[in-house]
Amino acid sequence: MKIVFLAFTTTRSEGVCNDLAWVADQGDEAVLVTVRFQSWPEVDPRARVIDLADGEARHPIPRIERLILFRIPRLGFRFLAAVLRRIGRIPVLGRPARSAEGKVPAMLQRYERFGITVHRRAYLPVYRHLRPYVLWRVARKAALRQLGLDSADLVVVADTAALPLGWHIARRYPDLPVKFTLDRTLWEKQRTAEAVTAARAT
């Protein structure tokens, strides 16, 4: 038996961790699909973890934001410092250029603070709405191959960020139950029924 938990945030981390340990205690396979696994509390080592953090970081939307807001400006400040350094070697312009070059690090620090403010106040509120769909596309490319959903018996969607992935899994695998919680009583009854059926077959 195999249960897959989709939990992209730590909102229900305690409950998910308890369910993972319970599934493992039953001798079944427990799989957790999440983002930034290092921010999670202790997860039962018997559970298999698939972390989408690297895939999310490589997605075009976060990459373009980092490029425009941070990487290109940093290169611009480095180029400005290099130009001023060369001008500083010219006797007539040397002293003013060296003085301006010394101010570049402070200018860069002020810009970095500005960039972080824009990231938090402008980018993140918009990205929060796009993130579930970004994570679905990331999971479709990477996680679905690792999950082996053909052999899964249940998928549990543990938070709202994982809803798009759960919805797409339900569409792609119509015979695979996709639920919002793990009903342990129902699961035990199902395992018992399958064990009885297997015993009768032998």
Rank of each mutant, 00 (worst) to 15 (best):
Y133Q: 01
Y133W: 12
V134Y: 01
V134H: 08
V134L: 03
L135I: 14
L135M: 15
W136Q: 02
W136M: 00
W136D: 09
R137P: 10
R137I: 06
R137Q: 15
R137F: 11
R137D: 15
R137T: 15
V138G: 14
V138F: 08
V138T: 07
V138Y: 08
V138E: 12
A139N: 02
A139R: 11
A139S: 12
R140K: 14
R140H: 13
R140S: 09
K141F: 12
K141Y: 12
K141V: 14
K141A: 15
A142H: 09
A142D: 15
A143E: 05
A143L: 13
A143F: 13
A143C: 14
A143V: 13
L144R: 08
L144V: 08
L144Y: 11
L144W: 05
R145C: 03
R145S: 10
Q146N: 14
Q146I: 05
Q146T: 09
L147C: 10
L147I: 04
L147R: 04
L147H: 08
G148H: 04
G148C: 02
G148P: 09
G148F: 01
L149D: 02
L149F: 00
D150E: 15
D150C: 06
D150A: 14
D150M: 05
S151G: 05
S151C: 01
S151N: 10
S151W: 02
S151R: 15
A152T: 06
A152I: 12
A152H: 01
A152K: 06
A152P: 00
D153N: 06
D153I: 05
D153W: 07
D153C: 02
D153Y: 14
L154D: 03
V155G: 07
V155F: 14
V155P: 07
V156D: 12
V156C: 07
V156H: 10
V157H: 04
V157P: 08
V157K: 03
A158Y: 10
A158F: 03
A158G: 00
A158R: 03
A158P: 03
A158T: 05
A158I: 09
A158K: 02
A158S: 14
A158W: 08
D159I: 04
D159Q: 05
D159Y: 03
T160I: 11
T160L: 05
T160H: 13
T160D: 14
T160Y: 11
T160P: 03
T160A: 14
A161V: 03
A161N: 00
A161P: 01
A161I: 01
A162L: 03
A162H: 04
A162T: 03
A162C: 11
A162F: 06
A162Q: 01
A162N: 07
A162Y: 08
A162V: 01
L163N: 01
L163C: 01
P164D: 11
P164H: 09
P164C: 09
P164E: 08
P164R: 00
P164F: 02
P164V: 04
P164M: 07
L165C: 08
L165D: 02
L165E: 01
L165T: 00
G166Y: 05
G166N: 00
G166V: 01
G166D: 00
G166A: 05
G166P: 09
W167R: 15
W167S: 04
W167N: 13
W167D: 14
W167T: 06
W167L: 09
H168C: 09
H168S: 12
H168F: 02
H168W: 04
H168L: 13
H168Y: 06
H168Q: 15
